[in-house]
């Protein structure tokens, strides 16, 4: 196992190099830079050149790549131009807001998907199963921004059930319980949409995996020896159906820390995705590049985690 993990980690190096080249090349294609994006007409050409030299924007692209990549190896992602702080600090400041949204959505979607998945497999082809199937398809096909907008319009603006956006009421200097409930109210809608988006495919996954297990001989044996149906389903079948699903937990990693860009934008949630979208329009390269690499690393680690978890959960699988 240890050997396997080490080998996989080593394999990540060329992949990361490839990713960094692609991402850097794309960003180098963007005409204009942070200085022009800020478009200050009062700034003289010389002053602009001076600033470029300070930020290192005057060097040719390939040199900038090596400087950037070399710094990253030392753990230095550079300074965000827009926030005037190291990229890692900016990420650390905002990523937790995204994490709050992500972790709750993860919890709810897994919970709902498990319950509905089990029951629609248990009562396959029943009315309940058919309704679930249809809902699953709708969830899988939701354009996130449109659903977000619809909910804001009807639930927040028209019915005034929830605040329109943001993470807390501005100007509210509350602490403790009041602050907590305030954030709770603000986070309800975005978490709901995020949950809806991921519940669809998860439910399908649990259903299929449950259907496979239910047909196994040991389930028949369990029934034959007179166990309660509840024990058969939840203890014998469900546990085995969970094994392949554990892999999915690894794939959730980038979603937890990567932020839901479009949803955060719509709900004005101060998460990392929101900041990232702004950085693109501000041409804040160091942050743009640094965070994209961060996302790619999360994906790679997530994939590794998925494989390792699979090996741990199912001893029949040997990782080589």
């Amino acid at each position: 196992m240890k050997q396997y993990i080490i080998r996989r980690l080593l394999q990540m190096i060329p992949t990361l190099i490839g990713i960094s080249i692609i991402i850097f090349a794309i960003s180098a294609m963007v005409p204009g830079d942070y200085i022009t994006a800020r478009a200050n007409p009062n700034m003289s050409i010389e002053k602009q050149e001076q600033l470029r030299a300070i930020y290192g924007l005057d060097k040719p692209d390939y040199q900038r790549y090596f400087i950037w990549a070399g710094n990253m190896l030392k753990g230095n992602f550079g300074d965000s131009m827009q926030h005037k702080q190291p990229v890692t600090t900016v990420i650390n400041t905002y990523v937790w807001n995204s994490f709050i949204m992500g972790i709750f959505a993860l919890f709810f979607s897994w919970f709902i998907a498990m319950i509905t998945g089990i029951f629609s497999a248990k009562f396959q082809y029943s009315f309940f199963d058919k309704v679930v199937t249809l809902l699953v398809f709708i969830c899988m096909s939701l354009p996130s921004f449109f659903i977000g907008l619809l909910l804001i319009k009807f639930l927040a603006l028209d019915l005034k059930l929830f605040p329109v956006g943001g993470m807390s009421t501005s100007g509210l200097n509350a602490t403790g319980w009041t602050y907590f409930t305030d954030v709770l109210k603000h986070s309800f809608l975005p978490i709901m949409v995020l949950t809806m988006l991921s519940t669809g495919s998860l439910t399908r996954y649990f259903r299929t995996s449950m259907l496979e297990v239910i047909r196994q001989d040991y389930i028949r044996t369990a029934r034959a020896k007179g166990l309660k149906e509840r024990t058969v389903i939840f203890k014998h079948a469900f546990r085995n159906a969970m094994i392949p699903a554990i892999t999915l937990l690894g794939f959730e990693l980038p979603g937890l820390f990567g932020g839901a860009m479009i949803l955060e934008q719509i709900f004005a949630w101060p998460g990392i995705g929101h900041i990232y979208l702004n950085s693109i329009s501000m041409r804040d390269y160091p942050f743009m590049l640094g965070f994209t690499i961060f996302l790619a690393m999360l994906t790679l680690v997530g994939n590794l985690l998925a494989d390792v978890l699979y090996g741990i959960a199912d001893p029949r699988i040997r990782l080589k």
Binding site: V30, G258, I280, T292
Partner: peptide, 20 residues
């Protein structure tokens, strides 16, 4: 490599490139 690329961010950056 392509699978690990964060799709939406890359697409947004490319879209911005097209505009620029």
């Amino acid at each position: 490599i392509f699978m690990a690329l964060p799709l939406l961010p890359i697409l947004i950056i490319l879209g911005a490139v097209l505009s620029d």
